[in-house]
Design a binder for these strands. Structure first.
Lengths: 132, 132
DNA sequence: TTAAATTAGAGTAAAATAGTCCTATATAAA
DNA sequence: TTTATATAGGACTATTTTACTCTAATTTAA
């Protein structure tokens, strides 16, 4: 699978955050989504570090959007949530039988495929995703 | 990652099989690719069951193509090699927080994304992949 | 008949995913 | 200024998936 639960939880959380004016706490989000609070908190921290969310600590704190939904791409959300690029297949992290990375018989295909996916995700904004 | 080593080994093996007239044994393939023979054998069995390869047992046996490279799609190869569909994210196999599968706020996006990827892979043949 | 090859199934090791837990830090409100 | 509420971060654990391995059976050309 290309995506893990981190991306799923990130997108579902963002949907709820958009619908609120005030900051939404991780506990509230976890409760509404029926998922683990601790795990969700990690993901929200990643989104905050990526400047997709802003966090406010303390009482009445929580998370809010840092940009307008039309200025946040799905590409950015997924990569932030996953903590790394969502890749088709990572030749580099394995030891390629071919030795020479990026020049085997299938690497041109993999590169084009990855490019296609990246472009697709870069051209969808958070606004579009929930506006249908 | 969308793909595992199964797809990588399948594509690399098919490249070598195409270049041979006679059936190629799993041992020879494993040696040339510098990978495990036992593991590769499993993958080649999957490709055989999917009618992408034909196998011949016994002495002088091995694997050969069952169709012309222009009639084999990458979609078919990957799904056969992986032993299941290569999916973006499988809501169904997880217990979706939303309960109702396929109707949450992100499922339309996931479905379109998956469709896009499937189409891309269905429109590339084995011939095209190595003909560049 | 024998050696070479695929087939099939069960089992195992390593890596990635999906969490948990605990402590520290910040802050709004009482 | 104290307290309750919230995020931040690191270390740890459990579960699942990936990536194999091993053994035994079956097929077949020479």
């Amino acid at each position: 699978m290309l995506l893990t639960r981190a991306s799923e939880y990130a997108l579902l959380s963002l949907d709820l955050i958009i619908k609120n004016d005030k900051p939404v706490g991780s506990e509230q989000l976890a409760k509404e989504l029926n998922i683990s609070k601790s795990f969700l908190a990690k993901i929200l921290q990643n989104l905050t570090r990526a400047n997709i969310l802003v966090s406010r600590r303390g009482s009445q704190g929580g998370y809010g959007l840092n940009k307008e939904p039309e200025n946040i791409t799905i590409y950015d959300i997924i990569n932030a949530a996953e903590g790394k690029r969502a890749t088709v297949f990572d030749c580099i992290s394995h030891d390629c039988p071919n030795g020479a990375i990026g020049v085997c018989s299938i690497s041109p295909f993999l590169a084009r495929f990855q490019f296609k996916i990246d472009n697709y995700l870069k051209n969808i904004t958070l606004k579009e995703l929930f506006d249908e």
